[in-house]
């Protein structure tokens, strides 16, 4: 097999055929699907969930994951936090001419492994090759299809006193990727949290009641996602700074650069709002999973009005948290 991707890999001829057969189909395994222009899948008759996401991360390999793992986990998580059981994925690749085929194989293997772990089947795909310089290595789009389960799900019926839970430490992905770019002049022993959460979230949906909403705080971080929930449902949400789990290393890098962990991306965390009665049980179940071992209750809904997020500092002072305005830049001193 060739060493690098060439434009011919995307022209629909013999090289395209081999690429699909030897790399994608051999890894994703759904041989039937490739004989037709569309994959035929069997769905339950319940309501289904559909989501799509594009992945353009730099670097494509980072501590704790790769663009491939992320492309599966990210879409699986979007389905899982919606309360749907992820079933099928499609994937579209845009690859830059000259991209090493060995790297493509690694990416595809990561996708296959993550799909297996989360129990989804990759049923359809597409590959386009663009001229050198027209893309940065590889971009991946995945579309996910999930099935809502009868009787279980998120009620969206919020009440004062509902607890806000985060499934683990925040900001790990953001710091792992920033340090992996090698631009910080810092080596921080932080792995990305990139992981599929569907098995863990299915467990809390099945074994507890009273879950109001689940969201994954990816770009924009914990604060931005909570601001969105507060505004969308007109809730005042209070969170306590000392209750929010942050790794010491993440805290350290943020202090040096002037970043705020509340706004750093996560790729394997969920925010769960649950009735006060069930909150401890939810945390107990989350902590049984490796992805949820640092789960913590970080705050509560204090009123069903105003649509705002408040942070209580260690001194007991409260301040408003808003969406991130623009990109975070490192500061002068």
């Amino acid at each position: 097999m060739e060493t690098y991707i060439s434009l011919a890999h995307g022209d629909g001829g013999e090289l395209s055929h081999r690429l699909i057969r030897d790399i994608f189909v051999s890894a994703f395994g759904d041989k039937n699907a490739v004989m037709f222009d569309a994959a035929a899948i069997t769905m339950a008759t319940h309501k289904i969930a559909v989501t799509t996401d594009s992945f353009v991360i730099k670097p494509i390999f980072f501590p704790g994951g790769s663009i491939g793992k992320l492309a599966v986990a990210g879409t699986v998580n979007d389905l899982a936090v919606s309360g749907a059981k992820p079933a099928y994925l499609t994937c579209g690749f845009v690859i830059e001419e000259g991209f090493p085929i060995s790297n493509l194989k690694k990416i595809v293997t990561d996708m296959a492994n993550e799909a297996k772990k989360s129990g989804v089947t990759i049923v359809a795909g597409d590959t386009k090759v663009v001229e050198r310089g027209s893309a940065d290595g590889v971009y991946i789009n995945t579309t996910g299809i999930g099935v809502y389960q009868p009787e279980i799900g998120c009620s969206l019926e919020f009440a004062e006193g509902d607890a806000v839970i985060v499934s683990g430490t925040i900001g790990d992905h953001g710091i792992a990727v920033l340090t992996a770019r090698g631009e910080l002049g810092i080596t921080a022993p932080v792995n990305s949290d990139c992981a599929s959460l569907n098995n863990m979230l299915e467990a809390i949906l099945k074994d507890t009641s009273g879950i109001k909403i689940m969201r994954d705080p990816t770009r924009g971080g914990l604060a931005t996602t909570l601001v969105e929930i507060a505004e969308d449902f007109q809730l005042t949400i209070n969170i306590q700074e000392t209750a929010i789990p942050v790794k010491a290393e993440v805290h350290g890098v943020c202090d040096l650069l002037g970043y705020d962990p509340l706004y750093l991306a996560n790729e394997g965390k969920a925010i769960i709002i649950v009735s006060a009665k069930e909150k401890d049980k939810v945390v107990e179940i989350l902590r049984k999973f490796p992805e949820g071992k640092d789960a913590a209750i970080i705050g509560s809904i204090s009123s069903k009005e105003k649509g705002r997020l408040l942070l209580e500092t260690p001194l007991g002072a409260k301040r408003l948290l808003t969406r991130l305005s623009g990109t975070m830049f490192p500061r002068i001193c």
Binding site: A317, K318, R319
Partner: peptide, 16 residues
């Protein structure tokens, strides 16, 4: 110091 200005506000010292 500008970092003090930020820290005083972020930690809630100024508000308290």
């Amino acid at each position: 110091c500008g970092s003090h200005t930020m820290a005083l506000a972020r930690t809630g010292v100024k508000q308290s």
